[in-house]
């Protein structure tokens, strides 16, 4: 019917792109990397913390991965674990600084955000690491490919699998329960035998690990290591967690809500992008919708209490 009203539109999809699977596949693929970061961010926020370093760690581990794979020509069986370990180590360092020196998470991870970005630039000497005219290692192509007759991106599968694993961690392990307890009342948790510092440190370590997963995916998607990669991703992933309804005060929320938040942000940006809405309007609309989504979440909670 729409096609009947607007005929002959220079080769445009007649039904409207929203009604094609490609549109949704692209959205999922584009926001999977943010979503992977948001998984780690969720557990940090559940403990009433915040991690501003995930974007920089994404850039750093992406560079690290590209360096190992392209410059040193190592096997992916070495490159991927090493990159993941690097991200986890940085995350654990965040946790140790926060718990043993009692530094506020905001400050500690801000410091990590700056220094990881510096390290990312150092690895590549301020430049991108790319294959150039030599052969690109096959792993890049493999991670950025799509399966099921080109209908589902590998990164989306990694994202959804992480969601599943995190759901299990949060709902079916002691560790997960302890995360909620620390976020809800850390003194009560401590007196109930929860090793608060250990659990907290582990939460930041996991956030670092997820940054590294995202970093490897990002490098594979772009076929190079970019020292500037992931700038501003920390804020997007925090927004995804919060829009889902996980409380920044800690103790309330869940990974399923983060999936919801990821979809909300993904769809907003995708709908605005596909309509070619001007950039200035986009920012305004995005801001308004984020506020509206949070207000709706809040009122939903108020009626429940």
């Amino acid at each position: 019917m729409i096609g009947a009203i607007f005929p002959g539109m220079s080769g445009e999809n007649k039904l409207g792109a929203f009604f094609t699977w490609d549109y949704h596949r692209d959205m999922l693929r584009d926001y999977s990397i943010h979503g992977i970061l948001a998984c780690g961010m969720t557990i940090v926020i559940l403990t009433a913390g915040i991690d501003l370093s995930v974007g920089s760690l994404l850039g750093m581990t992406g560079m690290f991965f590209a360096h190992l794979m392209i410059n040193l020509q190592l096997s992916p069986a070495v490159g991927i674990p090493f990159s993941l370990v690097a991200g986890t180590a940085a995350g654990l360092l965040n946790g140790v600084v926060i718990t043993s020196f009692r530094i506020q998470p905001f400050v500690a991870t801000l410091a990590m955000m700056v220094s990881a970005r510096g390290l990312a630039k150092f690895i590549g000497g301020g430049r991108k690491i790319q294959a150039g005219t030599q052969q690109l290692p096959a792993i890049f192509e493999q991670i950025s490919s799509q399966v099921l007759n080109n209908n589902l991106a590998i990164v989306t599968i990694i994202f959804l699998a992480s969601m599943g694993v995190f759901w299990l961690i949060l709902n079916r392990t002691r560790f997960g329960r302890h995360l909620y307890a620390i976020g809800g009342n850390d003194e009560a948790a401590r007196l109930s035998g929860v090793r608060v510092n250990l659990v907290r440190t582990a939460a930041y370590g996991i956030a670092g690990l997820m940054s590294a997963v995202a970093g490897v995916c990002y490098a594979a998607r772009t076929y190079y290591g970019d020292p500037e990669a992931g700038q501003g991703y920390e804020l997007t992933s925090i927004a995804m967690v919060v829009i889902g309804g996980t409380s920044l005060i800690g103790g309330r929320g869940g990974i399923f809500l983060t999936l919801l938040g990821t979809l909300i942000i993904g769809y907003i940006e995708k709908i605005l992008s596909i309509n070619g809405v001007e950039i200035a309007y986009r920012f305004m609309v995005e801001g308004a919708i984020i506020v509206a989504a949070v207000i709706i979440q809040q009122t939903g909670r108020r009626t429940r209490l």
């Binding site: 709908i271 605005l272 989504a293």
Partner: peptide, 27 residues
Amino acid sequence: AKLDLRKIGYSFFWLLALLPLVIGTGC
């Protein structure tokens, strides 16, 4: 995280606001 269908409904309420854009896609 409990599956609260009403809440999910709320969360996607904003899609209504963007409905003109959704339908208008490609127009």
